[in-house]
Write a protein that binds this DNA or RNA. Structure first.
Length: 711
DNA sequence: GTCTCGACTTAGCACCTACAGT
DNA sequence: ACTGTAGGTGCTAAGTCGAGAC
């Protein structure tokens, strides 16, 4: 039988999982620094909590029993054939539903056009009701079909699944040669390219609008790889990229893009349906008899590699992957997916200690690429849950760990001191671990352990603070990290020591690497690594900020604003940046123009008010008409002021968010249970915080979290 | 210990679409 | 009804980290 594995219900569990124990411990040994609200919660914890947990697990059990009744665990509620096609009925239904809804909407629209007014309200109302009902039905259906894996017992260590069946990856379509009227020119002369060379030429031509086709490294890499695809004759002719004229190919590509945009509704619909079919066939697998969505079921198409930042390999040809290079992973008794006709797989294996369904080796970095499940799957969800539980565990011992590394700052051993300073950074600034990277293989980016002397500047005094460290380096994805941080003097002095007699290009922590650091961390707490600090600090920050910023009495908009602000605080901590949207300046200017216009309007309204007041005064307060006018003008001024304020807030909000990406932290660092509990406490519907995809990903948290959850 | 590889998470960008504001 | 924009989605690069070979 399954044992429900909720943290909250640990005392009841006959076989508490590894998460459960920790939570119990944590609840009983709250730290001194605990904020008020937390203490309150702890104080009720003993009896009341127990009772609550009892209720809770009974509730859950009855729920489960019911579900077991309508949906046998072995999946026999689905049709019988083991072939994956059987799983389509559900999505067909969905699609059908969606389609019929669309049709409904369409017909409504049409009628609106044909008979502008009379028929509209009645019909839409009916239709709307129907659509609404359908939606609710669908939701219920989905809820019923959801695999509540979080209520099941975990597998023994290392085992990821017992059965796995799928249709293999989807391969991108073969290359279609250029039409005869589209030409490539070399040195002004028309030249017909071989299919292989032409395909690669098209990759380049497609990118011509991009800035990076002008970069030297990109062009050189591209040209070198392109030449490898050429026939001997082509090679002997084409020797200089600057003499290549791709303009016709480029124009054709642009025309194609344009044509695709201008397709009729029907044609677009047809395309959509064709895509849907592919998704239905390749987008799902059967994992332990449950239908699960695959995250990336398509083999990556060939193209020109574009790394992030100043990548030394940018422009290289990313080759087309053949089935002969692909390894399939599925269970022994499963139907082995068919390779495309005339092809075979590199290997078929049955390894249930890994989560991937297919893999291949990519030719740029020699890295392995995987086909894996969607974020809403059991495999991903369970891991995610575990991640947050480890972070919560860190919460219970973070004070000790901080004491430890502060003490280590005084150590005689250089390694220990370096480790302590690195940990201080990782904890305080949420820096990444910073593995070493092979020089010349990737863009020059660093994390904590790989920081170099040139990346920090020490200031004894800066902006009124003492011991300020100025960071300036490129992190993951070549995103710049720039920060000025006051640090404790011991750290400051240590840094000075570390930098003694070093060149700018030398490693700051020359005795330290991530492996050493993580070994140390895992000795302090099982499962602890550098990245757990990021998760922990992100989640705890969200929780604190939410507590600080939101009041129950706020209205929904205010609550949501506070939530976003809390989210933003985390994003800033984790340095989650984005390129300002391309239209940002323009749209900001538009907004500013509106604000200016409104300001003028306000000034006008004010002067009119003044005028009205004056007139009213002159004529004496007895004039009712003038009094009314004054009131009206007053109202106008007020309205204007409000609108202006609203726009100004919007402007600041947008400006603040200009370079900050909220999504990454929401998706990867914030324990969803914090958000779910907050929603419950604040009476905010979860839909306001998480969209559909996010709700699916965090289904486990939404289902199991009560209002009293504490990270 | 050091290096390499494999498996997995985290990340930003480009596109597209739905929706809010006029 | 129109349009600009924010937000959703797909894509795949770029990290982290543990294990095992040497």
């Amino acid at each position: 039988m399954h044992t429900p594995t909720w943290p909250q219900d640990g005392a009841k569990s006959t076989k508490p999982n590894k998460f459960t124990e920790e939570v119990i411990n944590e609840k009983s040994q709250k730290k001194v620094k605990t904020p008020k609200a937390e203490i309150q919660q702890v104080s009720i914890s003993s009896d009341a909590l127990k009772e609550e947990m009892e209720n809770f697990s009974t509730k859950k059990k009855s729920l489960k029993r019911k579900r077991v009744k309508d949906e046998p665990k072995d999946g026999s509620s689905h049709s019988v054939s083991p072939h994956l096609k059987r799983k389509t009925d559900e999505s067909e239904e969905e699609a059908h539903e969606r389609n019929s809804k669309k049709r409904i909407e369409k017909s409504v629209k049409k009628e609106e056009g044909d008979h502008p007014l009379p028929k509209k309200p009645k019909r839409t109302k009916e239709e709307r009701e129907e659509a609404k009902l359908l939606k609710i039905q669908k939701k219920e259906e989905e809820e019923k079909n959801r695999w509540r894996w979080w209520e099941e017992e975990k597998y023994e260590d290392g085992v990821k699944w017992k059965s796995l069946e799928h249709n293999g990856p989807y391969f991108p379509p073969e290359y279609q040669p250029l039409p005869d009227d589209v030409h490539f020119y070399y040195d002004g002369k028309k030249m017909k390219l071989s299919a292989a060379a032409e395909e690669v030429a098209l990759f380049f031509a497609q990118m011509l609008d991009h800035e990076y086709t002008t970069k030297k490294v990109f062009r050189e890499n591209f040209f070198k790889d392109w030449r490898k695809e050429m026939s001997p004759e082509e090679k002997s002719v084409i020797k200089d990229l600057d003499k290549c004229d791709f303009s016709e190919i480029h124009a054709m590509h642009k025309a194609r893009v344009e044509a695709r945009k201008n397709l009729s509704k029907e044609e677009k619909q047809t395309l959509k349906e064709a895509n849907q079919k592919i998704v239905e066939e390749f987008g799902y697998c059967l994992l332990d008899h449950h239908k699960e969505r695959i995250g990336n079921f398509k083999i990556e198409p060939p193209g020109l590699f574009r790394g992030r930042g100043e990548h030394p390999k940018q422009g290289m040809l990313k080759k087309r992957i053949q089935p002969e290079e692909v390894i399939i992973n599925c269970s022994k008794d499963a139907r082995i997916p068919d390779p495309p006709p005339g092809h075979h797989w590199k290997e078929v294996r049955h390894d249930n200690t890994v989560t991937w369904l297919a893999s291949w080796t990519e030719n740029i970095q020699g890295a392995i690429k995987y086909i894996m499940l969607n974020a809403n799957s059991k495999l991903k969800g369970e891991k995610d849950w575990e991640k947050y539980e480890i972070a919560r565990k860190l919460k219970s011992c973070v004070d000790d760990i901080r004491d430890t590394y502060l003490r280590d700052l005084k150590s005689k051993e250089m390694v220990t001191r370096q480790r302590a300073v690195a940990l201080y950074f990782i904890d305080k600034l949420a820096l990444r671990a910073g593995n070493e990277k092979e020089e010349g293989e990737t863009a020059d980016t660093v994390g904590c352990c790989s920081l170099r002397v040139e990346h920090i500047t020490l200031h004894e005094q800066l902006d009124g603070s003492k011991c300020v460290v100025e960071f300036d380096f490129l992190g993951k994805d070549s995103i710049r990290y720039y920060n000025k941080v006051p640090v404790i003097s011991k750290v400051f002095k240590s840094l000075k020591r570390f930098m003694d007699n070093k060149e700018p290009g030398d490693e700051l922590f020359d005795r330290l690497n991530t492996s050493l650091l993580n070994k140390h961390l895992s000795s302090l707490m099982p499962g602890l690594t550098a990245k757990v600090f990021r998760t922990y600090n992100a989640s705890i920050t969200l929780q604190q900020q939410l507590k600080e910023l939101t009041n129950k009495s706020d209205n929904e908009a205010e609550k949501l604003l506070s939530y976003n602000r809390a989210n933003r605080a985390v994003a800033i901590l984790c340095n989650h940046q984005r390129a300002p949207p391309k239209t940002f300046e323009q749209s900001m200017a538009n907004l500013q123009a509106k604000i200016d216009a409104r300001k003028e309007q306000l000034a006008l309204a004010k002067s009119e008010l003044k005028q009205a007041k004056k007139e009213a005064k002159d004529k004496g307060s007895s004039d009712v008409k003038l009094q009314a006018l004054v009131e009206r003008k007053k109202a106008a001024v007020k309205r204007c002021e409000e609108q202006l304020l609203k726009m100004e807030v919007q402007a600041t909000d947008r400006e603040e968010n200009k370079q900050i990406a909220l999504g990454t932290s929401k998706l990867n660092y914030l324990d969803p249970r914090i958000s779910v509990a907050w929603c419950k406490n604040m009476d905010v519907p979860i839909e306001k915080i998480y969209n559909k995809t996010q709700r699916e990903k965090f289904a486990w948290a939404i289902d199991m979290t009560e209002a009293d959850f504490e990270f």
